[in-house]
Design a protein around this nucleic acid. Structure first.
Lengths: 415, 415
DNA sequence: CGCTTTTCCTCGCCATCCGAGCATAATGAG
DNA sequence: CTCATTATGCTCGGATGGCGAGGAAAAGCG
């Protein structure tokens, strides 16, 4: 071990990453507002004209950005608009749901194209590995040998990845995560999936980035949805129970084990009512189809999601009993949202899943009543999410793209 | 407006700040673990030996760091230990409380020395300006002309700032903040204070950084207390009501208007009980002296803080009625803490103010009962804060030092 | 056709961070 | 005491990023 041999330092980390720091922020800005001009970019990031030239040229040559002429307005040399390159790097996104799954590919524009989907079967892991193997060919260009191997419940759209191997896989899972392991492993035996997907005989090793579906839904809204530009945003999704995430500068708060965002298990409810999670008085059982069933005096439904949509439909049709039950649930939602606004002071609250359908006078009244008085003059806006059922998939894309377009990711991919 | 004149860009921001980025992280690391060796520093930050030499030399010459010989262990050239320079830059910290105030000065080690204090009077702003003027002389070295101008209720310790003008003022206020304005302006007419303190006839302009006292208490615990090193930490302080903060990598989550951390106004309580804040069913009224009074069946106390300590003393002495009342409050605390752990997945929870005295079987039982089942195998530790009543002051110091030792702050002060 | 306006590009400068080699200061074996 | 060993600090030249200045380019306007 001579003196020149660096003992512990594995990499010239700082120089390698610093080199791409500015490129990463440029890419970030272009992803955030595609089509912005070079001049606008430079002023936003406080870059000199020289640096802009240098950075944009490098990203263009690497095939990450493309430029086209901006519409001319007035005098002066025309500038160019910057966009993610349409044939640039790609990522995969996998949306696992209770009953089915979807695999999509997306470019830097963040718009996913669904490649294949299937219903959840016993051989789920095998299904997914086949799908990923088809989408992420081990050697570039070999995915022409793609055969529409439609199994029992699967459907494929060939050749979505455009020949370049994807750089990462975002993974949305409908369960709490803790240290990248699914918590309700009894219910959804997906614990080993993330590990199994990292590499397989069919495809090269790519980073797999798992995230809770409600967390990723919030991420999607923060990047391209109702919470764009918010420094602090709160996203809440009602499906079975309620999930969500607190977003700070567009980044979800993940917690020590990645299990943050379980707002449904704040004790906003009746302390005498037990929750499936094992705690008492949780908010979640007051909000979904099970709560509606309780208010209607019927047995707990097997599928709370479907039951809830039925009741909401009946309420929309004017059914008095359904309206009363929905109002009680809406009030519970509004009361809790107000408390979270008090606690976290978000710029905006975004509702997803069934929550938008719960809004109405009962929600509004409970929301205002639950706010601290000084907030009522200018109450935090509560908006409906714009991503709908695609939110977790769109969020998985964003998660993967964030990894790929970070300074570290660029250093990995280009430098 | 020639072509060379940069139109909007006011500063060569990037180069100016990048220059100090590494210095800032070095300073951060040394503040976090004073006395660490150069080698340890280099491995932690992934710096080459050359860069370490360069950066440390610059910080030493600027008077921010000092080196002394490390205790030798084994062969090899002995290394040095890095510490904040004892005669380095200083900051001021002002702790405003309901009844009194304290002004302190601190070096980079973050240990405050109280310079003066006083009871809150009608001329508070004038008191504070005099005190700050004495501590932050307009011209360096002129504070020898200090006269112990002990007014009615003030006491001074002269010459704490050591001749160098302080670089910033951290300000702890016992009220919710929103956009740097105190919310309960009716109760505590301190709204104009922050603005007034920025500059005055007696002292030069220095940045004033206000923060809520409970937020700053959490900051202190995250930096040098019970939450050191936690990626996600939750700090809760019971005084009158309950305040707190969610800390991410040691930085408090502030919210859109800086009003985050009002966990006391989450609806963990009885929805029929109104809170002074204007909402209903808040957690706060279940936790402090007013809750104890309610459980004991006596009138609401004028000073809930003092009343609570009396009841806690009686409970410690074995008074049955007091014990029962405390147990109910402790259960309310434990239940809410568990919910917050479910929602935010912190690495550690730190309790301050009266909260440590509330802990006991009732708290523990409610805490465990409120946790999601999967958390019970390895419950998030709940620790008592180590800063005690000094926590807000210590946090104000940390807030000011963070500003001063950031890359921007270094560029301002040195570059 | 030239002038104005706005933007882009090239060049030299200075900064950081790096690797390599050498210098330095301790231990410990003989 | 001397010298090999070991761990660390320092110096130097090189690579690279960001900047300012000046000139070039591309449009409109008269």
């Amino acid at each position: 071990m001579g003196s020149g041999e660096s003992s512990e330092r594995c990499e010239p980390y700082r120089a390698r990453v610093d080199r791409w720091r500015t490129s990463a922020s440029v890419l970030d800005e272009v992803r955030r507002s595609p089509g912005l001009t070079r001049v606008e970019l430079a002023t936003r990031l406080n870059l000199s004209s020289a640096t802009t030239t240098e950075t944009v040229a490098r990203l263009r040559e690497s095939g990450w950005l493309c430029e086209d002429r901006a519409p001319i307005s007035g005098r002066g040399r025309p500038t160019t608009c910057l966009r993610p390159a349409p044939d640039g790097p790609r990522v995969l996104a996998l949306d696992l749901r209770h009953e089915d799954w979807r695999l999509a590919v997306a470019g830097l524009d963040g718009v996913p194209t669904v490649l294949c989907s299937g219903r959840r079967g016993d051989d789920l892991t095998e299904q997914l590995r086949r799908a990923i193997g088809a989408a992420a060919p081990a050697a570039p260009g070999t995915n022409d040998s793609f055969v529409a191997s439609t199994g029992t419940n699967e459907s494929f759209v060939p050749n979505g990845s455009g020949g370049r191997p994807p750089l990462a896989l975002g993974l949305a899972v409908p369960a709490p995560l803790s240290d990248d392991v699914f918590v309700r492993a009894t219910e959804l035996d997906w614990a080993p999936i993330a590990a199994d997907l990292v590499a397989g005989p069919d495809h090269p090793e790519i980073p797999v980035l798992p995230g809770n579906d409600a967390t990723l839904a919030g991420l999607a809204e923060a990047r391209t949805g109702a919470a764009v530009g918010a420094g602090t945003a709160l996203s809440l999704t009602v499906e079975v129970g309620i999930g969500g995430t607190l977003l700070l500068d567009g980044r979800p708060q993940l917690g020590a084990h990645g299990a943050a965002g379980e707002f449904g298990h704040l004790p906003f409810g009746d302390p005498a009512i037990p929750c499936a999670c094992g705690a008492w008085g949780c908010w979640a059982p007051e909000l979904d189809g099970r709560a509606l069933a309780r208010h209607l005096g019927v047995d707990p439904p097997a599928d709370p999601r479907t039951f809830a949509t039925e009741i909401l439909d009946r309420a929309d049709a004017g059914d008095e009993a359904a309206l009363a039950a929905v109002a009680r649930v809406a009030a519970a939602l509004g009361r809790g949202v107000a408390g979270l606004v008090n606690a976290h002071d978000p710029e905006v609250v975004v509702l997803g899943g069934l929550a938008p359908r719960l809004r109405g006078p009962a929600f509004d009244e409970a929301y205002e009543r639950g706010l601290m008085a000084f907030r009522r003059a200018d109450p935090t806006p509560v908006l409906d999410g714009v991503h709908g059922d695609d939110a977790p998939l769109d969020g998985a894309v964003a998660l993967a793209l964030d990894d790929v377009t970070s300074a570290e990711g660029l250093a990995r991919a280009i430098g």
